[in-house]
Simulated assay, not measured.
Amino acid sequence: MVKDRHVIETLGKVRVVIENGEITEVGSSDMKYCPMFHAMHGVEELNEEFIRKNINFRINDFGMCTPERVVEMDDLVTVGISEILKTNMEKGNIDCVVGACDGAGTLLMTNPRVVQGVGGRVSGLVSTTPIPEVIEKLEEKDCVILNPETAELNQLEGLKLALDRGYKNIAITILPSPMVEEIRNYPVDDGVNVYIFVAHTTGASADEVKMLFENADIVTACASKAIDEYADEHEPYYYGVKVPIFCASDDGRRFLDIRLEKIGKPLTTNNYPRNKDDTPNKLI
């Protein structure tokens, strides 16, 4: 029997292990302050006590890493990757999202509310093991699991599966890794578009960040020192002050602006130097 074990990175690249619905390991991070958590919850310091409290809230509220996992949600914040994807799927610009879900691994999603539910409140998923109840819920919502037996995380194989299923406008969510470049260079037929959304970039190296901006469409800032420095030098379009979302391509900007138009927000900006009075501390 496969041991129930899920590893995520959250709140400044803190490694958290969850087994059988219980937190069994909490790492540490140099990042002690996040403006978003301060604004939403009044949190002054991202210490171990708060991290445990936050992860337990996710476990109890929507069943993260448990059989009680909720797989459909409405919008959680004004602008995040899952919200951008959900809106563009509703508009018909994206017909499949290759994502990752705790308890299921890499999967194909075609339901906008599932896209939001799977990605909305989960941090970087490092590894996971199958939870049959979660897989069943997802399959009932027309999701296709890459490997239900192992809950494998492999976004390149997810892309191949989406192509085999005949999807034409495929968005992929992924963490920083060399696989981003592999996905961008993977051969596809004429008329097929592949869009890459990179999240959880805290701790990425300068070389990684350069590669991300050369290959992705949207890159979140998180608490990445290298992205902060890259943005200052290259001045990509972005939205947000506390934790910006950067457009690495014209398609990325188009997707972001479609979300902003829906919620009545000003479109992407190019205001440099950026206001950094309220950013994560410290950047990693």
Rank of each mutant, 00 (worst) to 15 (best):
D75R: 14
F62E: 04
L46H: 04
E72G: 02
N47F: 04
K53M: 11
I94L: 14
F57Y: 15
T87K: 11
I59Y: 04
G80Q: 02
E48G: 11
V70S: 08
E68C: 07
E72T: 10
G63Q: 05
K53H: 05
M64H: 10
G92C: 13
I94C: 13
T78L: 04
F62I: 09
T66C: 11
I94N: 13
R58K: 07
E83G: 06
V71A: 06
R52I: 11
F62C: 10
F50C: 09
I84H: 03
T78F: 02
D75Y: 06
I55S: 08
F50M: 05
D75F: 10
T87P: 01
F62M: 08
T78W: 00
L85W: 03
D74P: 11
I81V: 09
D95H: 13
D95T: 15
D95R: 14
C65L: 13
I94T: 14
E72A: 03
R52C: 12
L76R: 01
K91S: 08
I84W: 02
R58E: 00
E90N: 12
I55F: 02
I51L: 10
D95K: 14
T66H: 04
N88M: 13
I55C: 09
F62P: 10
R69A: 12
E48P: 07
D61A: 07
I51K: 08
M64R: 07
T66Y: 00
R52Q: 11
E90R: 14
T78V: 01
I81Y: 01
F57P: 03
N54H: 11
L85G: 06
F62G: 10
F50S: 04
K86R: 15
L46K: 11
D61P: 00
D74Y: 04
R69F: 14
V70P: 00
V77F: 05
V71P: 03
T78S: 09
D75G: 06
R69N: 15
N56W: 09
E48A: 10
N60I: 00
D95Q: 12
M89A: 15
E90W: 07
K53N: 10
D95C: 13
D61N: 14
C65W: 13
I94E: 05
N93Q: 12
N47P: 07
E90M: 07
V70A: 08
M89T: 15
N47Q: 12
I94P: 12
M73W: 05
K86C: 15
M64D: 08
V77Y: 07
I84K: 03
E83N: 06
D74W: 04
E49T: 15
L46M: 07
F57V: 03
D61E: 11
M89V: 15
E72N: 03
V77K: 03
R58F: 01
F50Y: 10
V77M: 08
I59L: 01
F50W: 14
I51C: 10
R69E: 13
G92Y: 10
V70N: 09
F57I: 00
L46G: 05
D95A: 12
E68Q: 12
R58Q: 05
D61Q: 04
E49H: 09
I55Y: 01
P67E: 09
